[in-house]
């Protein structure tokens, strides 16, 4: 459970950062798939986990870079741009894998999937480490401050001498990179690289972010809130599983929760100010 969550968790961190700068990255879901597939193929060819990790990160980063350049440099709309790269990434994942799970992942990877420390799976530790690194990046560095300010008011950022382009491109790169890591972790969770692994995650990822109260307008929200949103969602899901609620009813409850959560977060934010 926790292990599966770290895929969503890592992807949601990327989405949170993109939301905070006032954008959206719909491609996260299928970039997870694409990097899983390509990484799986690379590992099948070389039998090296290290190369697999590098490949996954590289693929994710490349997609992020493409998104970032199109949005930050050429000024295309984030929604359409990432919708298009979402399609492209999915296509690549399916073409390269011929639509089936990639075989031949190294044995060591399964061991890694079962590895745990202090009773907590290693992948969860990785997720936590990424959370902490990103929180530091966002709240303790100038880059993070610039990100928040651009999300709050892009024009004012430009008029204050903040490098809007660089920050914007880099945030999409980071979001892609995190999707790449999430893709790799999905292989270690499932034992295989599945071409459709990320497709259904988009709802969960955006759901977790908005449930945490980070709005799409930019400049308002935090990673900690997203972690809270994920916590809420996963407690809910495991609770519902426990009492035997079928997955389709869980979908209904999730939808309602996302809606009510967003609404409450909006009300609370309005009241605070």
């Amino acid at each position: 459970m926790l292990a599966a969550n770290s895929v969503v968790l890592i992807a949601s961190i990327g989405m949170t950062l993109v939301f905070l700068i006032g954008g959206i990255d719909l491609s996260i879901s299928t970039v997870i798939s694409a990097s899983a597939v390509i990484s799986g193929l690379a590992m099948a060819a070389t039998d090296s986990i290290f190369i697999g990790v590098l490949t996954a990160i590289g693929v994710g980063f490349s997609f992020g870079l493409i998104n970032g350049i199109l949005i930050g440099f050429f000024g295309l709309t984030p929604f359409i741009t990432t919708m298009a790269t979402q399609l492209i990434a999915r296509g690549i994942a399916f073409v390269l894998s011929q639509g089936i799970a990639v075989q031949g992942t190294p044995y060591g990877l399964m061991d890694f999937g079962f590895l745990s420390f202090l009773g907590v799976p290693a992948v969860t530790w990785i997720g936590l480490a990424i959370v902490i690194i990103c929180i530091i990046l966002l709240t303790q560095t100038q880059w993070g401050r610039h990100l928040m300010l651009i999300g709050s008011n892009r024009n004012a950022a430009r008029f204050s001498g903040i490098n809007v382009r660089f920050t914007e491109i880099s945030v999409y790169c980071l979001s892609g990179l995190l999707a790449g890591i999430a893709g790799f972790i999905s292989i270690s969770n499932l034992g295989n690289a599945i071409p459709g692994v990320g497709d259904t995650l988009l709802l969960l990822v955006i759901g977790a972010v908005v449930l945490g109260g980070t709005t799409m307008n930019g400049g308002e929200g935090s990673i900690a809130r997203t972690v809270l949103g994920i916590g809420l969602l996963s407690v809910l899901i495991s609770g519902l599983n426990l009492i035997g609620i079928p997955f389709y009813d869980q979908l209904i409850i999730q939808g309602v929760l996302i809606f009510i959560g967003t609404w409450l977060a909006m009300k609370l934010s309005a009241r605070r100010h």
Partner: peptide
Amino acid sequence: LITTLATYSIYRGMA
């Protein structure tokens, strides 16, 4: 976007 994303989940679950 968010509203219909939520109803997307609800409607699919209902179906």
